[in-house]
Amino acid sequence: MFICPYCARNFYRAPKFRAVSHIRFLNASPNSPAIDVYLNDRLMFRNLLYKYFSDYVTIPSGTYHIKVFPSGNTVNPLIDKSLFIPPEKIFTLAAINEYPNMDLLSIEDVRHPKIPDKAFIRFGHLSPEAPTLNVVLPNGNTLFSNVSYKQITPYIPVDPGTYTIEARSSSSDERILYVPNIRLRGDRFYTIYAVGNLSKPPELQVLIPLDGNSYIGS
């Protein structure tokens, strides 16, 4: 099973005299409730369900105090961290780990020169229970190897088209995830995020968003 939430261009205005960056938020914490995300005590993302992405927003570069609460609450944050956002970057900020022991992972949607008639993909391991993984095609070709929890691989170019992938344990080669019918378009950047659990709900699956480097600043 996979979910492919394509995010819209919905940006906040930022002061012109400061360099800006673009961020979105992903709730990848298994069994978490809907969450509210505050930046410097300002509500930025509201009622974000597990497996959902926010839209990208534009913010000035700088250090931000990030707090995450169960939606509708403002006491006892699930995440309470400071994070520097450098200028002219694109980030996906992910709530990870099992609820309620959530953590924050900052993932840069790295800008790359586009190659005509190529799609770019990478793999993000956000499943706290899953072992280190190899991501392979049904013909045995390996796309990504030895990807451990919280690791995000570099992008690689592939031909546009429809793909089936398998995630296999790097140590035993056991297939733990099978994902058919992944459609990839040319001149686009995608991250295949593995989320969920192996031994208990919610089940292991992938999310395949269109990354902001596909269109922000292009």
Rank of each mutant, 00 (worst) to 15 (best):
T63Q: 15
H65P: 11
I66R: 02
K67H: 11
K67S: 12
V68Q: 04
V68N: 06
V68G: 06
V68K: 02
F69H: 06
P70S: 08
P70F: 06
S71T: 09
S71I: 04
S71Y: 07
G72R: 04
G72W: 03
N73E: 15
N73R: 13
T74N: 12
V75A: 15
V75H: 14
P77R: 03
P77F: 07
P77K: 03
P77T: 07
L78R: 09
I79S: 02
I79H: 02
I79W: 02
I79D: 05
D80F: 10
K81Y: 09
K81D: 13
K81R: 13
S82G: 14
L83D: 07
L83I: 11
L83S: 09
L83F: 08
F84K: 14
F84D: 13
F84A: 15
I85S: 02
I85R: 04
I85A: 00
I85P: 00
I85Q: 01
I85F: 02
P86I: 00
P86C: 01
P87T: 06
E88I: 06
E88D: 15
K89L: 01
K89Q: 14
F91H: 02
F91A: 00
F91R: 00
T92Q: 09
T92W: 09
L93F: 12
L93P: 01
L93W: 03
A94D: 05
A94C: 12
A95V: 11
I96H: 02
I96T: 13
N97Y: 07
E98T: 14
Y99I: 06
Y99D: 07
Y99L: 08
P100R: 13
P100L: 05
P100C: 03
N101L: 12
D103C: 13
L104T: 06
L104H: 09
S106A: 14
S106E: 08
S106D: 08
S106I: 12
I107G: 01
I107N: 10
I107A: 09
D109K: 00
D109H: 01
D109R: 01
V110E: 14
R111I: 12
P113G: 08
P113I: 10
P113S: 11
P113L: 10
I115E: 03
I115L: 08
P116L: 08
D117A: 11
D117Y: 13
A119M: 01
F120P: 02
I121V: 09
I121N: 00
F123Y: 09
